[in-house]
């Protein structure tokens, strides 16, 4: 099964739309609720990162009997130091974004903790790609 969602940079009122859709899809597919919870947390954080940092992005989701694969590709500033960005508490979010309670440097660690495999690749000035895999029988 394949799904795609577009994400608009800066539009916080739509943040979480893809996560909410995926939650419904996984529930319909009778995926273990514990797995649904983890996947939804990881996707929400990744979705919010595009809204908070990038200009636009696309989410590609592939589900088969073994795994859920999510790929988020954005056009944006990119991440100069991914290792630093992965550290809990590190954030480059704007003051406006922080005021909303985002940008506490917890997003990427949350994604890491809630997926079986996380790969972040980025090109400064071009964009970032996040790939997350969750195994259904883990």
């Amino acid at each position: 099964m394949h799904f795609e969602f577009n994400v608009e940079g800066g539009n916080f009122s739509k943040a979480g739309t893809a996560s909410s859709q995926l939650k419904k899809i996984l529930k319909q597919l009778n995926v273990d609720p514990r797995i649904v919870k983890r996947v939804v947390v990881a996707l929400y954080e990744a979705e919010v990162n595009i809204v908070a940092h990038a200009f636009s992005g696309t989410i590609y989701i592939d589900i088969d009997t073994e795994k859920i694969e999510i790929k988020l590709v954005d056009e944006g500033p990119g991440i100069p130091d991914i290792e630093l960005a992965m550290q809990q508490g590190y954030s480059t979010a704007s003051p406006e974004v922080r005021e909303m309670g985002f940008g506490a440097g917890m997003g990427l660690p949350n994604m890491k903790n809630n997926t079986d495999r996380l790969l972040v690749t980025s090109e400064v000035g071009k964009g970032t790609t996040v790939e997350m895999t969750t195994y259904l029988n883990s």
């Binding site: 919870k37 947390v41 929400y44 954080e45 309670g101 985002f102 506490a104 917890m106 660690p109």
Partner: peptide, 19 residues
């Protein structure tokens, strides 16, 4: 902090906030 709630709140909890 929204990511804190996302990471640590449990289903069935009441969330207390000023957001």
């Amino acid at each position: 902090l929204l990511s804190d709630v996302m990471g640590s709140a449990q289903a069935g909890n009441i969330w207390i906030t000023l957001q």
